[in-house]
């Protein structure tokens, strides 16, 4: 692995700072205005923001285009999420070159949800590469300046590649085996799927053992009951605690908008106080706050980590 540092995210991780990242979701729209506005609010709160790539296989604005515009317009460093679901190895290679040319500095290599789960279920799923081989491809391109066939890349892209881990996976040993494989492939940082239970996190770190790759633990403070309920019902490997879910459900009845916001914030701060306190004692290198559309919750949560 090369020792060069290309991004602020990687610089902070290497410096051993406790790192916070956020998440932005481009939509089915002909512009990226909303994520850009959200990103502006997050500047200074997080070092970088992930920009989702067709999350849950719903087809939205291209993540590379969105990442570029967010970096340019909002001045927020982006983690360009790149899924194998929709592109073969040639398109992936081409997109990584494109990302480098546009000045993107971080990629999160993902297999991606199956297309049948989203809004274009009759699409042909690709998965020509998987997350591990995509990580390997990116490392080869960046470090060796070579493509898959060993051909030289003129002025290779300068960026870092991360991967995902799922602490709540049904089969933890198989999941951890896969994470170790990603580490062997040269992944430079890991961001986890959302975790709500501290014991889930502890079991994951125990099973993984000591590794040299920094791990950012994913949390999801929900802005609405619907968001929390969606995670609980539809996102594999994520269990939302019933007490938290009920407290969020209760906020639905509050009619006054401002009071509702205050109560949602209170529920989140109350729940995450214990979780984040626990997180301080784990080997996590930081926290990936997937507070999509909910930037106001990040400062109080960050304060809990001080």
């Amino acid at each position: 692995m090369g020792d060069e540092i290309y991004s602020d995210l990687m610089r902070e991780l290497k410096e051993g700072k406790y790192v916070f990242t956020g998440e932005l979701e481009p939509e089915k729209a002909g512009d990226v205005n909303e994520p850009i506005e959200m990103a502006k609010e997050l500047v200074g709160m997080v070092v970088a923001c992930n920009v989702t790539d067709n999350p849950q296989s719903f087809a939205y604005v291209n993540s590379m285009a969105a990442s570029y515009l967010i970096q340019k317009e909002a001045g927020m460093e982006c983690v360009y999420q790149l899924r194998c679901s929709d592109r073969n190895r040639m398109a992936l290679l081409s997109d990584v070159l494109g990302a480098g040319a546009l000045g993107l500095k971080n990629i999160l290599a993902l297999a991606g949800d199956h297309v049948s789960l989203g809004d274009t279920p009759d699409a042909k799923p690709v998965f020509d590469l998987d997350s591990t081989t995509l990580i390997q491809l990116i490392r080869t391109m960046v470090d060796e300046g070579k493509d898959l066939g060993g051909k030289e890349i003129h002025n290779p892209p300068k960026l870092h590649v991360g991967g995902a881990a799922a602490p709540g996976a049904a089969h933890l040993k198989a999941e951890v085996g896969k994470v170790k494989r990603k580490i062997n492939a040269g992944v430079e940082y890991l961001q986890t799927q959302v975790v709500y239970y501290t014991d889930v996190l502890d079991k994951f770190f125990d099973e993984l053992g000591k590794v040299d790759v920094p791990i950012l633990v994913g949390i999801f403070p929900a802005r609405t009951f619907g968001q929390a309920d969606f995670f609980d019902k539809y996102v594999a490997g994520v269990d939302v605690p019933p007490d938290y879910l009920e407290a969020m459900r209760a906020t639905k009845a509050i009619k006054d908008k401002e009071k509702k916001k205050e109560e949602v914030d209170r529920v989140n701060i109350e729940f995450f106080t214990g979780f984040l306190e626990h997180l301080k004692g784990t080997p996590a290198a930081g926290c990936h706050m997937m507070a999509v559309g909910y930037p106001r919750i990040i400062p109080p949560l960050k304060k809990l980590m001080e």
């Binding site: 297999a111 199956h114 998965f127 997350s131 996976a169 594999a236």
Partner: peptide, 10 residues
């Protein structure tokens, strides 16, 4: 998903 290096996170 036909992955050569699984399982996926799902």
């Amino acid at each position: 998903k036909g992955l050569m290096n699984g399982p996926c996170g799902g």
